Structures are given as structure tokens and as C-alpha cells.
Amino acid sequence: MIEEQICAYLRGKLLQARDLKILNFRRHTEGWSWETFSFDARWQEDGRELCQGYVLRKEPARAGVVGAYDTFAQFTVLKALEDTPVAAPRVFWYELAREVLGAPFFVMEKVEGEIPLPWAEGERGPFADAAAQQSIAHQFVQHLAHLHTVDWRAKGLAFLGVPEPGQGAALREIEKWQAQLDRVELTPIPLLRRALLWLREHAPLAPRVSIVHGDYRLGNFIVRDGRIVAILDWELVHLGDPLEDLGWICLRP
């Protein structure tokens, strides 16, 4: 059913396409919140056969693990990064109308490659040797540096919410995560409440404000031929302290 709905949507976007078909349709189950589908579209246009791989990401019916996500924010940030050195997947269309697939969604390119998964036991993947590991690590840090130096004002991304100077970025994140705890806490967790109080009392000063990925880690990028070709999972993207991404990397495997 949803495959037919997506095909009809593409026909409305690819107006010159004839005999459009969807191939290799797959519903992904790796994610913990979004509904994600990948497929190839094949069609005839001006006497030529064309094929393009797509990924469609749809908002979940309910709030995710960390609350509601904003497809428009994610789409807009990815669009803004297209002409930068950041390996962001190219995006094509954003759809707000819920009558199309039941929830807002956007469509981006399908990037071929391998996703190193930190929880896959015995997984070596692109880290077959020390040289490959060092190369990927260097690229991983380089892409993050590129992201943190993008001029978000010039890209029109102030709508993400600009934190107040000083402790503003840290305090806003603390408030966000406290709200999430309030939403999901079934029984009191005193240690977490105490941790939030400590963080509020010791909120660091942000050196500057940048685009923050929010979940920059192993498992959220695609490698092909020894190169990082796409950074994934931008649902937590926001403006804040660039050291937030660095701290998250240090805590994650």
C-alpha cells in the first residue's frame, strides 16, 4: 500500500517521467524512531531510461525516544549543507500534507556504502586495518569541523533557535532533557534529578554558537571506498555549543 502511495507521489514530482516504477523497496528497521524506506525509481524520459535511488524518512506516529522530531528542520539543514564540504545527503522534496502518507516526510538520495555499527559483535567493516581506521577517524573529525564552521546565519538557519550568549546553549539543552525525563519517567530517579541540578549549577560557557549535529557518532555515517560519503540521522540538529558534539563522541563507542 505505502509503496503505491510513494510511487504516486513521485509521479507528481517527476512530471516528465513515463512508465515510472519502484524497485528494491525496503522498509528499514534499524532506526529507533523514524519510519525509513529506501527504493530505486526507474522511468523513461526523453527517450532515455533513468534511475535514481531514494530514501524517504517519515515522522513517527508518536513522539520518539527523545520527543517529537521536526522533519522540516532536518530537511532545511540538509538543503543548506549541499554546497558545503559536509558530507550531507542531497535532499529532493519535503511534504507537510499528512494526507499523502499520514505524516510529514522528506525524500533524499540513497547513498550506497557501508554503515559501521558499534553494537555489531565482531564487526570490522571499513576498519580492516590500522591505516583504514586512522583515515576514517581523520575524516570523521574533519567533517565535524566543517559542520561547526558553516555560517548558519548566512544559510538562514536562525529559525532553529539561537541560544543566549554564555551559558544559554548548555541551559537550553538541560531544560530540553529535563522535559524528556518528565515525559518518560514512570518512577522517580533521584540520581538523574541530582545530575540535572549539578549540570545547571555548573553549566559551561559556550565559546561560540554553531550547527550541532546532536548524535554525531560511529553508526551514523556511510563509508564507501575508504571515504565517508554521507553523515546520517540529523533529527537532533540544532544551534548550540560545538563542544556538545565533541563531548558526545567521547562518551559513545
Rank of each mutant, 00 (worst) to 15 (best):
M1P: 01
Q5H: 09
I6F: 15
L10M: 14
R11Y: 11
Q16C: 02
A17Q: 03
D19N: 08
L20M: 15
L20R: 11
L23P: 00
N24H: 13
R26W: 01
W34H: 07
T36Q: 04
R42A: 12
Q44S: 14
G47H: 08
R48N: 09
L50F: 08
L50I: 10
G53T: 10
G53A: 11
L56E: 05
R57F: 15
K58Q: 15
K58A: 15
E59Q: 15
A61H: 08
G64Q: 02
V65R: 13
A68F: 13
Y69K: 00
T71R: 12
F72P: 00
Q74Y: 02
F75E: 10
V77W: 10
A80Y: 00
D83R: 06
T84Q: 10
V86K: 01
V86T: 07
V86S: 06
L96Q: 15
A97T: 08
E99V: 04
V100Q: 13
V100H: 12
F106I: 08
M108S: 06
M108Q: 14
K110N: 11
E112Y: 12
E114P: 02
P118L: 11
E121Y: 06
R124N: 01
P126V: 06
F127G: 06
A131P: 00
S135M: 04
I136F: 13
H138R: 14
Q139S: 11
Q142V: 06
Q142W: 10
H143F: 14
L144F: 03
L144M: 14
A145N: 05
H146M: 02
H148F: 10
T149F: 05
T149Q: 13
R153C: 14
A154S: 12
L157M: 09
A158E: 15
F159H: 04
V162H: 01
E164L: 13
A169Q: 00
I174M: 04
I174A: 03
E175L: 09
A179S: 13
Q180G: 03
Q180A: 03
D182M: 09
V184N: 02
L186C: 07
L191N: 01
L191M: 13
R194S: 10
A195K: 09
L199Y: 02
L199T: 06
R200Y: 08
H202I: 08
A203S: 05
L205S: 03
R208Y: 05
S210T: 14
S210Y: 02
H213E: 10
G214P: 01
D215M: 04
Y216A: 02
R217Y: 02
F221R: 05
V223C: 11
V223G: 08
V223I: 12
R224W: 06
V229P: 01
V229Y: 04
V229C: 10
D233V: 03
W234M: 03
W234T: 01
V237K: 01
L239C: 07
E244Y: 09
E244M: 04
L246G: 01
G247Y: 03
P253I: 03
P253H: 03
